[in-house]
Simulated assay, not measured.
Amino acid sequence: MHVRRVRAGLKGWGGVGAMAVVCALALTFVLLLPLVGQHHDDGAGLGGPGLATGDQMRAENCTDPEKQTLPPSAADGATIEAIKNRTGEKRKLIVGVDQNSYRWGYRDPNNQGSALEGFDIDLVHRIAQDILGDPNAVQFKAIPTNERIPAIKDGRVDMIVRTMTINCDRLKDVAFSAPYFKTGQQVLAPKSSTITGYNSTLAGKRICTAASSTAYIKLDEDKKAGRLAASVDISTTVPNQLDCLVRLQLGEVDAVVTDGALAASQAAQDPTVELKGAPFTTEYYGVAMRRDADDMVRRVNQILVGYSGNGWQASYDTWLSATLGKDASASRPPAPQYLRTS
């Protein structure tokens, strides 16, 4: 029923007019969330001290980053105890999320109260239920793509659940849970475009990516290595992925490169665009936390073990089956491995 209401609300949308409404709603609702704080290099607040040299060495030498996490445990440690000791209205899990990613973390204007909802939001509620005994004991903070790691290091949030890809470079700054979703980079472009995928048809085209995203890193590396035509323009970067779709609709860029799971949701918002070609990377989303919050990492991994068998599929069916297909096997991560020992 809920999915049908969303479809009805979006039916016929497309082009600049549609996104003007979406962006206006996003701008309105961002005022309802706490302001994103400023970056502090001293790591004040929840962030604690900076990353130790030994941790940097381990991250720099990492392989299979999705496996570089701690074994699961239900035990409470200092990090979790500090959260549980919050009192009154402050006794909540503080989580950085997106509010503009359709079906992942967004506000549906068709629903009363327009509460945040989506696949990532379901996972946040499960984590809050396990740690604090209340799925709604959450303070959501809207965090742009390029602010995800600073928000953790500065202590503005306890964790980030925001379609965040696990990779070795990010492991220098934050810790990740085991993967909870599998995806890959894809190209999104108008249906009428001559672009056919991540190939030579991108030559001379303007590509939009989110700042600090794995998409931009991949494009930049491939251009420098000669795997991508030198004429491809990757200078357009934006704070949030939804901004790329707006740029595409305004004709300011020719294509968007982002995670296929996000690109499929953007295509669902605008019937004039489509995915071009197959995914050209394999990536895994994880919950990001402080590098020294070992007890939290272990606890989230324990939660994910249960969630994989009871909750994950129901959430996929509700939010993602309409855009990614009823068969969820391509989106399920492999059985977790826990190679990090300290």
Rank of each mutant, 00 (worst) to 15 (best):
G113Q: 11
V6L: 14
S200Y: 02
L242T: 02
L275F: 06
L171T: 01
T79R: 12
G9K: 00
V21L: 09
I166W: 01
T214F: 07
K276R: 14
S212D: 15
A175I: 00
Y102V: 09
A203V: 03
S329W: 11
R156D: 14
S101E: 14
M19A: 07
Q241T: 12
G48R: 06
I217S: 15
L324A: 11
A20H: 03
P72T: 01
A314G: 12
I149K: 08
K172A: 12
Y307K: 09
V161P: 04
I83D: 01
G226L: 12
V246D: 09
V161T: 05
Q185G: 10
V256D: 03
Y106E: 10
Y216I: 05
G309I: 06
I143E: 10
V232T: 05
T323M: 11
A115Q: 13
Q112W: 08
T145G: 12
I152P: 06
N110C: 14
W319C: 09
V36T: 08
G50V: 00
C244I: 00
N85Q: 12
R162T: 01
H2A: 11
L25E: 13
L304F: 05
T145V: 11
R91H: 11
Q302R: 14
M296L: 15
Q313E: 14
D295R: 02
A82D: 09
G277D: 03
N100A: 14
A151V: 02
P239R: 07
L31N: 10
N167I: 02
D134Q: 06
D169F: 06
T145A: 13
I234H: 04
R340N: 13
A24F: 01
M1G: 14
Q313I: 12
L51T: 14
A59I: 00
Y106A: 14
S213V: 09
I143V: 13
A59D: 08
Q269G: 01
T196L: 02
V287H: 08
A211L: 15
E283K: 07
D55K: 05
I160L: 07
Q241S: 13
R332H: 12
G43N: 10
A215V: 08
S235V: 02
V124A: 15
D173C: 01
L31R: 14
K191F: 00
Y338Q: 11
Q337K: 15
L320V: 13
S213L: 12
G48D: 02
